[in-house]
Amino acid sequence: MILHDYWRSGTSYRTRIALNLKGLDYRQAPIDLRTGAQKSGAYLALNPQGLVPALEVDGQVLTQSPAILEWLEETHPESALLPRDAAGRAVVRAMSALIGCDVHPLNNLRVLKAIKALGADQDASDQWARQWIAEGFAALEALVARHGRGWCYGDQPTLADCYLIPQIYSAKRFNTDLTPYPHLLAIDEKAQAHPAFQAAHPDQQPDAD
């Protein structure tokens, strides 16, 4: 497996976590988003959307982190990142989508650049990101309080935790007040001591600053 990623990308981060939780070996091929490497001809030949991550495996290229994570779960079922029951899987997928669809896209690099192009300064851009993070985290905090037993759902990491931890990392970059979310902070603390999450952390990547 070859993972084309960027050290500080939240979608890359969540994919690394999932790969590590499943104990899979992969080689990284860093794509520097700051220099526009994602728009090079060579990379666009792999991923026409010009985004990270992309996972090369068995002669095919998988893109979009939700699809990659679902593929990993289907093809490498151990360690499972989804509950065994249909209702539980729906809850975990909803938690994941809460971040992956409603929070993360609104504070990624492309969107923040677009906001600045419309005239927002750095403070306004950061406030925009914090607004959507706070709204999403408030809902997720309630769901984790209802369904979690140490992790987002139950007592083992799931796809929801793969999404949550990179978003907390991003929230800290935007100086988001996280004190209203004690359940999420407890999961973050637990993840900091877990080898799979430690190895996936942006600071541990070969292209990190």
Rank of each mutant, 00 (worst) to 15 (best):
A160F: 06
H183M: 11
T179S: 15
Y169G: 12
Q204G: 06
A160N: 07
D123K: 11
G119M: 01
L164F: 03
E135Q: 14
D121F: 12
P180V: 02
E135K: 13
K116Q: 15
P166F: 13
P182L: 09
E135N: 11
A196M: 13
D155K: 04
Q198G: 00
D161M: 11
W151L: 14
W128M: 08
P180T: 01
P166N: 10
L140T: 00
G154V: 10
G136E: 08
A199T: 08
T176R: 03
P182C: 02
D123T: 10
H194R: 06
Y169Q: 10
P157D: 04
K190E: 02
S170N: 15
L185Q: 15
G136P: 06
H194E: 14
V144A: 08
N175M: 09
C162L: 11
D203Q: 07
D126C: 06
E141Q: 11
H183T: 10
L159K: 03
P206D: 10
R146S: 12
E189I: 08
H183E: 14
A186V: 07
E189L: 14
G154F: 11
R149S: 15
G119K: 02
A120E: 06
Y181W: 12
E135H: 11
D161Q: 12
A142N: 09
L140D: 02
Q204K: 13
Q192V: 03
D177E: 07
L185F: 05
Q127L: 13
Q156W: 04
F137G: 02
A120H: 05
F197M: 00
L118D: 13
A171D: 00
R173A: 00
P202H: 07
A160M: 09
G148H: 01
L143E: 13
L185R: 15
E141A: 08
W151Y: 05
A186T: 09
I168T: 05
E141R: 02
A129F: 00
A200E: 06
Q127M: 10
S170W: 00
Q192A: 15
N175C: 08
P206K: 04
I165V: 15
E189G: 15
S170F: 00
P166G: 08
R130S: 03
R149E: 15
L143Y: 01
Q204T: 08
A160I: 07
G136R: 09
P202Y: 04
E189H: 13
R146A: 14
P206W: 05
D123C: 03
R146H: 15
Q198T: 09
Q198S: 01
R173V: 00
A145L: 14
A124C: 01
W132S: 05
P157L: 05
I187T: 04
Y169N: 13
E141P: 04
Q192T: 08
Y169S: 07
L185N: 12
C152G: 13
A199M: 11
N175S: 14
G150S: 10
